[in-house]
Design a protein around this nucleic acid. Structure first.
Length: 479
DNA sequence: CTGGGGACGGGGCCC
DNA sequence: CGGGCCCCGTCCCCA
């Protein structure tokens, strides 16, 4: 015989005990603030605590203390409230940090809710567009500079938490019939309060930024290398580990955010680099075409809404706030650029190596450095070299310069490369189409680098009928 | 293990 | 508004 209310009553009882500090056998220290909780509950709710507490299970009689520095007390309170109530209080400001913390604590339910929250924020933003225009224009017109009634959106999963410290002074109205999606209005004073909260979050931004990189979310970088992530910022934690589930969460999140482009892998698998690069090449073919209607552009198209949600006016200076983090920029275009780090899209693929970039300038810089050997410096002895005193050497798709001495020392007979004929991307698109061996568009030619074992040479194969299957002997492969 | 350098990402801002 | 430059921070590799 099941009594359905038993579970919720049990949870309520535990929550009550926690509030009254009854039978609490675990202390969690977050930036100096102490939270009391029950080991059993934490153990059952978080993979992180499961591991931590099972390691300290020998000391069952002793109270356990855990210390965290990577998220704020407010964030942990949201999570702890969820653990004891099943209710998660998410806002546009805290969702990233809550998700980051949940990722660290290995609480997949929270991560899922955060993902849903973010997705919903994008959906809802569309509906609010018209509303924003009418509001913001009227507000701006009324006094020229200030917006007396900026509004911000906040969402809550279920109702308010038992003792949420957030949003205690805001009015709530329903939006779109979504039972857990509320739109919250701020008066000017309330907005200031919110801004001070934001400022505090901004201070935390740098610490969270690193973690966000780990999440593969906004700051995700260098993904094709599947970099092993540094754990330096976690070294101070009681245990420093990244679980499989966190890894998976990162992947899932990345895929959800950035299905239009750059990916760690698919599903829960971490793909080997070779496969990743193959995928990236496929993606480069597809997404380069689609880059103009990319995720960032979609977000950008919704920008008025987002700005309505997040914009603020500081010292007569309009600034634009990113809906996904605390970053603010002065120009809309900068926000558009910034959004790419959230969507994960990299519209600029390097045709030489398949690596993709968020900006054309990064691609150019990469191409000059890696594939054009533009630096007149001997890679070995670091001396300055000229065309007379050194040569360009190719190693795979990578080119660099060696001085004549180092060339001899390495036993390489270099074959000069006409770098002038190989324009880097974007310098002169028309010329590029005619002359360059490596292209940064995607569909024109396919290039293969073939290693000839018999000669030890790297052959670049350019698939272009007009070039009569030009096989170009490039350089000795010195690897 | 550590420091230096290279590669890259991202922000500010000028043109 | 996009392109581009400069600067800084981070990560990784290597000596």
């Amino acid at each position: 015989m099941d009594i359905s209310s038993h579970q919720s009553r049990l949870l309520q009882q535990l929550n009550e005990q926690r509030r009254q500090d009854l039978f609490c056998d675990c202390s969690i220290l977050v930036e100096g603030k102490v939270f009391k909780a029950h080991r059993n509950v934490l153990f059952a709710s978080s993979g992180y605590f499961k591991m931590l507490l099972s390691q300290s299970s020998k000391d069952m009689g002793q109270p356990t203390t855990a210390t965290f520095h990577m998220f704020s007390p407010d964030t942990f309170m949201v999570i702890l409230d969820f653990v004891y109530s099943g209710k998660l209080s998410l806002t546009g400001q805290n969702v990233i940090e809550v998700m980051s913390a949940a990722s660290y604590l290995q609480m997949t339910d929270i991560i899922s809710v955060c993902k849903t929250f973010i997705k919903s924020s994008l959906d809802i933003s569309e509906k609010e567009k018209d509303r924003y225009f009418s509001l913001s224009e009227k507000d701006l017109n009324s006094n020229g500079t200030e917006s007396p009634c900026l509004y911000s959106t906040e969402w809550r999963v279920e109702s308010s938490p038992p003792h949420s410290q957030m949003n205690s002074d805001v009015g709530v109205s329903m939006v779109g019939g979504n039972s857990w999606s509320n739109c919250t209005y701020y008066s000017a004073s309330q907005w200031n309060t919110q801004q001070s909260h934001l400022t505090k979050q901004t201070q935390r931004r740098h610490s969270i930024k690193k973690r966000i990189r780990h999440l593969g979310l906004p700051q995700s970088t260098d993904v094709p290398h599947c970099k092993s992530r540094k754990l330096g910022d976690r070294a101070s934690e009681p245990t420093s580990h990244i679980s499989q589930s966190e890894e998976q969460t990162q992947l899932d999140t990345e895929v959800d955010f950035a299905h239009a482009g750059y990916q760690h892998g698919l599903g829960s698998e971490v793909l080997p680099r070779s496969l990743l690069e193959t995928q990236q090449e496929h993606e480069s073919s597809r997404s380069a075409n689609k880059s103009k209607s990319s995720k960032a552009d979609e977000l950008y198209a919704n920008m008025p809404t987002i700005l309505g949600v997040m914009g603020s006016w500081i010292e007569d200076d309009v600034r634009f706030k990113c809906p996904f983090c605390t970053h603010m920029v002065k120009r809309k275009a900068d926000l558009k650029r910034h959004l790419r780090c959230h969507t994960g899209e990299r519209p600029y693929p390097c045709e030489a190596c398949g690596k993709r970039f968020t900006r054309l300038e990064h691609l150019r810089s990469h191409f000059r450095t890696i594939h054009q050997a533009c630096k007149p410096i001997c890679r070995k002895c670091k001396r300055h070299v000229t065309d007379m005193t050194g040569q360009v050497v190719q190693e795979g798709t990578r080119r660099y310069r060696l001085c004549n001495e180092c060339l001899v020392e390495a036993g390489i007979e270099s074959i000069p490369i006409d770098l002038e004929a190989e324009q880097s991307p974007g310098f002169s698109p028309e010329e590029e189409d005619k002359d360059s061996r490596w292209h940064f568009g995607e569909e024109h030619r396919t290039k293969e680098v073939v290693e000839d074992d018999s000669t030890g040479l790297v052959i670049q194969e350019v698939d272009d009928s007009e070039d009569e299957a030009e096989k170009k002997e490039v350089k000795p492969n010195i690897s």
